[in-house]
Write a protein that binds this DNA or RNA. Structure first.
Length: 285
DNA sequence: GCCATTTGACCTGT
DNA sequence: ACAGGTCAAATGGC
């Protein structure tokens, strides 16, 4: 990612952060006007970012560009390939207990949950995840890992995510989120960018010092040194899209990207996911 | 001992 | 039938 892009994203993040704090204050006319302006800036910044993405990747098809920030209400499962891998019946370790005893209960595979995918340098976000599975994917050299929210059983949170390294760039992760968090469990990112930190100082350090996910050790052999992840079970200042005032919300729904790439606009039907992304990944860039 | 991860089995959608 | 998603016993780390 080039510096212009990062700068633009950081700018957008800055606006979003200011907006977040503004919305936490009691309503007053001045704050409302400022929020409006900040919202415009956030919109402009993300539009500019996408514009840069599309212009700097002329060979990249639109849908591929969109995959960097893909929001979808449909099933995100990938199409099956024609080339079937030879079935490996080499089961070196067999279960010690009888197979007939191992009848698992039936379960419903979610199909209608809203999904969206991002490509990120880190798998870390401000939520606690628990890995529940890993699969080798056809024609992919990297396995796909499956995570669920740690609060799934405590609070019935349905959020899950799938993480897979990119074939073309193993340092990057393709992360597919399925369903929104309904729990109140967030983690404080170790290197959260705050308003007090200048973008310049962040830019100088960001490329090597981005927080290393605690899941990384589960995916593939680690390539970087681990930094400690401090789990914080409750964080009171989580930005919940539902916290937005109705006026702001309806205004947000009217927003469309102003560039000339209609395929990339974030439609009102995806605003929920868009705002969710803002709240989830604002600290990441 | 508790909790998270690993991993083969099982289940579902196509 | 197959690929991918989920389950849950085994395992390991603290």
């Amino acid at each position: 990612m080039n510096n212009t892009l990062i700068t633009e994203l950081l700018l957008g993040l800055d606006y979003a952060t200011q907006l977040k704090f503004l919305l936490q204050k009691p309503v007053d006319p001045d704050a409302s006007a400022a929020a409006k302006e900040l919202l415009t800036n956030v919109h402009r910044s993300f539009a500019q970012t996408l514009s840069i993405l599309t212009s700097s990747h002329p060979a990249m098809p639109q849908d591929q560009v969109a995959q960097n920030l893909l929001i979808s209400g449909e099933d995100a499962s990938q199409a099956a390939s024609i080339d079937p891998r030879s079935d490996d019946s080499t089961e070196s370790r067999k279960r010690s207990f009888p197979l007939s005893k191992d009848r698992r209960g039936s379960y419903k595979r979610r199909k209608t949950e809203q999904t969206w995918a991002i490509v990120s340098q880190t798998t870390e976000d401000n939520h606690a995840w628990r890995k529940y599975g890993q699969k080798d994917i056809l024609n992919s050299q990297f396995p796909r890992s499956y995570f669920r929210c740690t609060r799934k059983f405590e609070q019935g949170c349905k959020a899950t995510k799938q993480v897979q390294r990119l074939e073309e760039n193993p340092d990057m992760y393709n992360i597919t989120y399925i369903g929104f968090h309904t729990c109140k469990d967030t983690l404080k990112a170790p290197q959260m960018v705050t308003c007090s930190e200048t973008w310049d100082s962040f830019l100088e350090n960001s490329h090597e010092d981005l927080n290393v996910p605690n899941e990384q050790k589960q995916l593939d052999p680690p390539v970087r040194s681990q930094s400690p992840i401090v789990k914080q079970e409750s964080l009171s200042d989580e930005t919940d899209p539902s916290d937005l005032t109705d006026a702001m919300w309806s205004e947000l729904k009217d927003l469309e990207l102003s560039n000339d790439k209609p395929d990339l606009k974030i439609s009102s039907e995806n605003t929920d996911a868009f705002m969710y992304l803002l709240s989830e990944f604002g600290h990441e860039f």
